[in-house]
Design a protein around this nucleic acid. Sequence first.
RNA 1: GGGUCUGUGGCUUAGCCAGGACAUAGCGCCGGGCUUCUAACCCGGAUGCCGAGGGUUCGAAUCCCUCCAGGCCCGCCA
Length: 555
Amino acid sequence: MMYQEKYHQIERMLRACTSEEDILLTTGGDHADLASTIAFKLAKIEKRAPQKIAADIAEKLSGNPELGDVRVEATGPYVNFRFGPTLLGEAVREAIEPGYGALQRRSGRVVLEHTSANPNGPLHVGHIRNTVIGDTLARAFRKAGHSLEVQYYLNDMGRQIAIVSWGFDHLDIPREEGEKEDHYVARVYVAANREIEKNPIITEEIDHLMQKVERGDAETVTKFRRAVYLCAEGIKATLAALNAHHDRFVWESDFVRIGDVDRIVEQVRRLPQAHEDETLWVDLTEQGFEKKYILRRSDGTSVYSTRDLAYHTWKARNYDRMIDVLGADHKLIGAQLRATLGLLGEKPPEIVFFEFVSLPEGSMSTRAGKFISADELIEEVAAKAYEEVTARRPELPEAERFAIAKSVAIAAIRYDIVKVSPEKSTVFNWKAALDFERQSGPYIQYAHARACSILEKAGEFERAYHYETDHEVALARHLAKFPVAIEHTMQELRPHLLASYARELADLFNAFYHYDPVLKSEGETRNSRLALVDAVRNTLKESLETLGIDALRSM
RNA sequence: GGGUCUGUGGCUUAGCCAGGACAUAGCGCCGGGCUUCUAACCCGGAUGCCGAGGGUUCGAAUCCCUCCAGGCCCGCCA
């Protein structure tokens, strides 16, 4: 927390010194630990050269004993602050502590919903972008001191599920030997869709099934639930393989069953913006939406939006803060949901959108059976990882090589996804997915394993905290910023910030490793460098774990 | 057509919301480094009118406007 304390302290001092509220304090990049461009702003007001103003501010502040081990100087128009050796030592000392990066406990319960893919097939490479973003955010929130529950909203009454259920009833498709549940369900779903294309009458049967489910017809409900349960088993296995965890699976049909959907429909009907003709819909033109927001079909059944409204109303009443991770295809419906909740006087969720993942040949489609499943991806990447481990560490027992390969594969997959900003649409790329070199998860794992290896060989040592080489200083400065990286990731809901932080730390450590020998150095230098390696090890471990990646001690 | 996101070296990408110091890094390419703490590594080099054009500003990749290109959305699907 040294960095944040110094930030706030310098902020206060600059405010006092300039009588400005916004003192334009930023991380100084290569030039400094903190830097301010306040002189530009004051130049206009005072009609003096910014260089002179910066020099005056530096002069005034440098005499202040409160500054302690921070050096201040004006470089041209910039006021630069640099941490001295005592502070850097303190940063390293902090970074060695177990759990480094955790922030102060925060009050309030947060609910985060992610993945929530329809249970009509396995998760594919598009769905797991949602999973990785959501799970990483969940980990960052917990690390930042939030009490959090992670939910998967399981759609067990949509048209897709009706189609699957119809398929199980009318098509004789046996499950193959060893076939995973969700892949089996997808086969039934694809086959049923082909039947519907051949014979559109089936659509009416599907409609009929959906009406029965909405009425709570026991037999139909059981059939739907059985199909959904089967598929969810497969999905859960994939999520577990990806190190992603949900605290609760919320079944959509529960909101119909317990009457919440009826209640929300009644509330909506009382809204001045509500209209009822053959359907019930909300007019959101005042909120900037042209489209009718339909909440009841002409046959009286509810739609996805109705149940979603009920779900979010329930969340709003049971949690202090709601976060949803959704694909960009949900932007309109998500905005309509927020607007309608607003009209109802309910708290709207915060929504994290991510853009689409497509295949080189076009967008994915479960219905057309056109997708790369997450399971296939994991299998391919793990196979390549096993080859790599075997080539590098032939002496290790097979079980150990296998375990390492599994961790390396998940690291590669998760990092490859999380490192890209969510607002960027991507095209799935096998070459990139199978790359274990720089800017990859395994690259960061490797830096961690190196640090572990050095410490293991070092044995007992007495910690010292004295740093002077460029590589040592750069590392210590970066270690100090880890809590800030956690905070920004959480505040901005942008998990890729943490991915960048971890990669930069690994970069700096690798350079240090090459130039500054640790075990071969002596005395205080050796002890200081060992403490630094330990701090890097711990910070890499905390970063990796927040990214949902195993911090391997050996690879 | 309307909405929305994106456009940064051959490819991928950070920075953009909170404008400032030489635009971040990877892949690929060229060249170098393993009797030395795990080479899944490190170092050096070439490659950029930050999509185009206007504007605001002392200062624009970053803010505003227009245009161009691409993704996604615009269902009584979810």
